[in-house]
Design a binder for these strands. Structure first.
Lengths: 115, 115
DNA sequence: TGTCGTACTACGACTGTCGGAGTAAATATA
DNA sequence: TATATTTACTCCGACAGTCGTAGTACGACA
């Protein structure tokens, strides 16, 4: 099972995380598992990478954190919620992805092209 | 004209450069212009990024350098030639790109999906 | 003579990711 | 009940690739 290295996915962690916050707030451990599941085990984000992304994006105003106080369903957790600025950032990054994809594919060996 | 930022193309500079060496040796200035032209001005690689990529890839055995001695057609230049190892590396990276693309697109808002 | 294009090189700074270690509560297993 | 595993982080220092800035130097053109 081939896995994706950090140097090629780098630059997309932000949109991956924000995508998983679009509908509902979530927290580190859950997001980590969702990335793994959704990517069918092809991308497993490192804990340190994920949590430092949270810190950075909160500083940038893309997400907001809050702590679950009731503790009904388990341990204390830090949840993150996407902000309007975060939604806007996500949209912009998606557009940039489309552009980037087109550019990169010009430099990828297609079918029938000798390499 | 939207331009691609370095943090999203990072990780692909190697294959972009190697692609342009697949058929013939080339040198920094020319490769830089070709990237710009082929990408339709969407990606303009920084000189320092390009030349440090050359150094790194030569160290890794993916390219070899030689200097044009005759100087018939202008200034002295350092040319680079792709090695078999470089070709192999390029192929592997292309496959990784396909995988990465599929994964990232799972986290991109598609048509009709609210963001 | 001066400016523009060509073709680099050097250096220090910065950012995001990583490996490793550690903490601690909740849950599952024996 | 005791222990192991899972959950849910936090901190630290290191590293790689990119960047900004600056500088060099040659050739062509006006």
């Amino acid at each position: 099972m081939a896995e994706i290295s950090s140097d090629v996915i780098r630059g997309y962690n932000d949109i991956i995380i924000l995508y998983l916050l679009l509908n509902d707030p979530s927290y580190g451990y859950e997001i980590s598992k969702q990335i793994r599941t959704l990517s069918e085990d092809k991308y497993i984000i490192k804990e340190t990478t994920l949590y430092s992304a949270f810190t950075r994006m909160e500083k940038n105003g893309f997400i907001e954190s809050f702590v679950n106080e009731d503790l009904a369903g388990g341990k204390k957790r830090t949840y993150y919620r996407i902000t309007p600025a975060g939604r806007e950032y996500y949209r912009t990054k998606c557009e940039e992805w489309t552009l980037t994809k087109e550019v990169i594919e010009k430099f990828i060996a297609g079918e029938g092209r000798a390499v």
